[in-house]
Design a protein around this nucleic acid. Structure first.
Lengths: 253, 253
DNA sequence: CGGCAGATTGAAGTCCATCAAACGTCGTGG
DNA sequence: CCACGACGTTTGATGGACTTCAATCTGCCG
C-alpha cells in the first residue's frame, strides 16, 4: 500500500487530525448498499471513490464538528456511533439524532456554510470525509449521485418529522418503544439482530432525544420489562416480544 | 395576455385543477428575494421561469397533497398560509410546520417519490408548481440553482432541529413565545409589521405544532397578556415588548 | 336572531419532573 | 487483589406542569 497523498482541497485543521493511511473507497466498502453510493453504477461509484479519499478516526467523546464551525464536508459514518445535538442559550441541550454506520452527518451545514449543531462520537468511530464542494461538483455530472444527495436530505427531513411526531404527540412510554423499534430496524438492516440491542448512549442522552428525563426513561424500560416485553440490563436490551411492542405504537389504547 | 399553453410534462390530475391562466414567472415576482430563485442571476432566473409556468389556487381547507400521494412537484407558496402535518396510526396528528409566502413545500416527497405528510391551506392561497424532474435537470446545468436547492433542504433540516429543541426542551410558555417571535421575524422579512401578528391557525393547530393542548396555548397567551408583554384578541396578537419576549427565551429563569 | 365553531377560564386529575437515596459496574491506584 | 471513587442506573416519595373535563363566552355567518 503506497503512502497516501493528502488531498490538497481538504480543509486544514481539525479534519486532518487522525487521518488514516487506509485507502478509502466506496467501491469495496461493505456499507455501499446503505450509504452514499446507493443507486450508483460501478463506474459512477469509482468517480465517487476519487473524492472519498480521507477517513478519520474519532475517539469516544470527541467532537466531529461543533455549532459555528465552518462547513467543508459531509461525513459518512463507517464504524461507530454518533449523537448530534443543538444547544439553547441557557445551556439546555436537545439531542437531535443518533447516527450509525452508513448514515451521513453534517447536512445542517450546507445552508449557511456553518454547522448549526454538534456531532459527538459515543464510541470510538471511523468516518469517511466527503468534501462538499467536490461532491456538489460531481453530482452535477453524475445524475445518480445528484438524485442520491437529494434523497439523503429528503430522508433526513422525513426522519425529523417522525421525531417531531414522537416529541409532540406521544407519551413517555411510547417514545421509548418507538426509539427501540427504530433502532432495532436500523440494526437489522445492517445484518445485526433485531432483538438484541446494545444502547450506545446514556439514559440522559436518550432522555434528551426523547424529550423526557433520564429517570423517566429508566422507569419506562423497567415497566416494559415488568410487562415481559423486553429484558434490560444496563445498556443491553433484548426485545422479547416485537409484535407486542409494535402493537403498542400502532394502536395506542 | 395570450392563452397559456399547458405544459406537457406536468403531472396529470390534482395539480391541474385550479390552474391559473396567469403567466407565472420568478423574474417579475415580488418574492424572488425570498423564494426559490435567491442567488440566481437574471439570465438564470429566466431559465427557471421556463419551468415555473403553473400556478395553482388552493382554497382554505383544501389539501395541496396528502400522505401517500405520488410526488411530482415541489410547491412554492405565493400567497396564503399552509400547515403540514403527519399522522399517527390512532389518529393523533402532529403539525410539523406552518408555511408562508416564499417558502417551499413538499421536500419530504423527494426521498421515496411519495409524500409523507399532508399539506393543507389555512386560508385561500396561491402556489407556484415546480415540477421536480425538470427542476432537478435544470439544477445540473445551473449551478446557482443546484446550490439553492441544497440550501433550501438544508435550511429545512435546521428549522426542524429548532422545532425539536422547542418540543424536547422548552416549557409551554417558552414554546408559545418562541413561536410568536419566529412568526414575527418571518413577517418582518416580508415587509409586514413585526409587532402585529394575525394568526392563521386555530389554537388547536398551534397546540399540535407546539406539542401542547389548545387550552395550554390559550392560558400561555393570557398569561403573557397579563404580564403586559402582548395583547391578544382572538387571532390577533400585538407584541408590546419584543425585547422582554426575546429575553424570556435567551435567559430562561 | 339563533346556532356554531373557536376561545377562554376554572376545577380536578394524571403524568412526568424533581429531589433523594441506594445500587451496580468499571477503572484506578493503593 | 481489593478498596475506593466516579459514574451511570434504578427506585421511591413528593410536587408541579400540563391535561382533561366542563362551563361559559365571543364573534361570525347563515
Amino acid at each position: 500500500m503506497s503512502t497516501p497523498t493528502p488531498d490538497q482541497t481538504l480543509p486544514e485543521g481539525a479534519f486532518l487530525q487522525g487521518l488514516q493511511s487506509l485507502r478509502a473507497a466506496c467501491s469495496n466498502c461493505n456499507l455501499r448498499e446503505l450509504c452514499l453510493p446507493v443507486g450508483l453504477s460501478a463506474d459512477e461509484m469509482q468517480r465517487v471513490d476519487e473524492l472519498v479519499r480521507t477517513r478519520r478516526q474519532v475517539l469516544r467523546g470527541e467532537h466531529l464538528f461543533r455549532t459555528g464551525d465552518a462547513f467543508h464536508s459531509l461525513v459518512a459514518v463507517r464504524t461507530g456511533f454518533f449523537k448530534t445535538k443543538v444547544l439553547l442559550a441557557d445551556g439546555r441541550e436537545q439531542v437531535t439524532g443518533f447516527h450509525m454506520a452508513g448514515e451521513v452527518i453534517g447536512l445542517d451545514g450546507i445552508g449557511n456554510e456553518r454547522h448549526t449543531c454538534d456531532a459527538v462520537a459515543l464510541e470510538d468511530s471511523e468516518v469517511c470525509v466527503l468534501p462538499y464542494g467536490r461532491l456538489a461538483g460531481l453530482s452535477r455530472e453524475v445524475e445518480a449521485l445528484h438524485r442520491r444527495l437529494h434523497q439523503i436530505m429528503s430522508s433526513e427531513i422525513v426522519r425529523e418529522h417522525g421525531v417531531m411526531l414522537l416529541l409532540g404527540s406521544m407519551r413517555a412510554g411510547e417514545r421509548v418503544v418507538a426509539f427501540l423499534l427504530n433502532l432495532s430496524r436500523r440494526l437489522a438492516m445492517r445484518g445485526y439482530s433485531e432483538r438484541d440491542l446494545h444502547l450506545r448512549m446514556t439514559r440522559e442522552e436518550l432522555g434528551s432525544y426523547l424529550g423526557v428525563k433520564l429517570e423517566t426513561v429508566s422507569r419506562a424500560l423497567s415497566k416494559l420489562q415488568a410487562d415481559g416485553l423486553l429484558e434490560v440490563s444496563r445498556r443491553n436490551v433484548r426485545l422479547l416480544d416485537l409484535p407486542a411492542l409494535r402493537a403498542l405504537l400502532a394502536k395506542s389504547e
